[in-house]
Nucleic acid binder design. Structure first.
Length: 247
DNA sequence: GGCCAGGCCCCAG
DNA sequence: CTGGGGCATGGC
């Protein structure tokens, strides 16, 4: 199966990437501009790990294909997509911004936060701000960017950033609790952070799309049906439902 | 121009 | 513990 770079970067797990007019995909990660393009097969060490290219997706997807016919269709249509190894802090804030929001606007807010509080790499490219860079930010500053009712949530996350970043060393259950102790992080946002920021591949985030997917395509079933491939299954169903629609 | 968006908080029962 | 209103903002 062929790796689908664009589907991987734009399937809703990351808010860092932009498609440029020349067809390249660009993002600022680790204070560096990264540029990749569809069809590319060689990546530098950072991107190789970021794209999770060391994992055997081919074998895993063959297993999932056998699990269920709808997943089989989703995998056929979407191709080989990977779960990224993203920075935890960027994932935390990204998915806090995501609640009751749409992806276009999440990306816009993500860019505004980078431009306003991050470090300039070169013209038009800014790193996403680290917790230290957000230390003195006020609720007014955040509301001015357009984050709306999420402003106090972000402030709480900034205040608790040390605890939040410490969850990399904790068990899944403890990580989930500490994340949800933050204002504005509930079950779904925590699940997204754990899947996309901690690479907990057995988490199954349930947003409005996945709830629709479950009630229409998998009535009576729950996430255990997809064991032990909950994370990947969820991402295929999310992308498939959004692009293909419900029939 | 109203509906909706990768939900969560808060408060009633 | 479960259900539903309210929430800022702007894309469509």
């Amino acid at each position: 199966m062929k790796f689908e770079l664009e589907n991987t970067l734009f399937c809703g797990q990351s808010f860092s990437w932009r498609k440029c007019d020349d067809g390249n995909f660009k993002a600022v990660l680790e204070n560096k501009i990264h540029c990749v393009i569809e069809g590319q097969s060689e990546f530098d060490p950072f991107m190789t790990h970021y794209l999770d290219n060391e994992f055997d997706y081919n074998g895993t997807l063959q297993e999932i294909t056998k699990l269920d016919p709808i997943l089989n269709s989703a995998i056929k249509e979407c191709g080989e997509i990977h779960i990224l190894n993203q920075d935890l802090w960027e994932t935390v804030i990204g998915f806090m911004l995501s609640q009751n929001n749409n992806i276009k606007r999440i990306e816009g807010l993500y860019d505004k936060m980078s431009k306003t509080f991050g470090s300039k790499i070169e013209d038009g490219y800014y790193s996403f701000p680290r917790p230290e860079q957000l230390k003195n930010v006020t609720e007014y500053d955040l509301r001015s960017l357009g984050v709306g009712f999420r402003a106090p949530y972000l402030l709480d996350a900034i205040k608790r950033s040390d605890d939040i970043l410490s969850v990399v060393n904790l068990s899944d259950e403890k990580a989930d609790k500490i994340l949800q102790d933050t204002k504005g992080i509930g079950p779904k946002v925590s699940a997204c952070i754990r899947l996309f920021g901690l690479h907990n591949m057995e988490v199954f985030p349930k947003d409005v799309w996945i709830k629709r997917v479950m009630s229409t395509w998998f009535p009576g079933k729950d996430e255990d049906y997809f064991k032990p491939y909950q994370g990947l299954s969820q991402q295929y169903l999310f992308l498939y439902a959004r692009t293909h629609g419900f029939e």
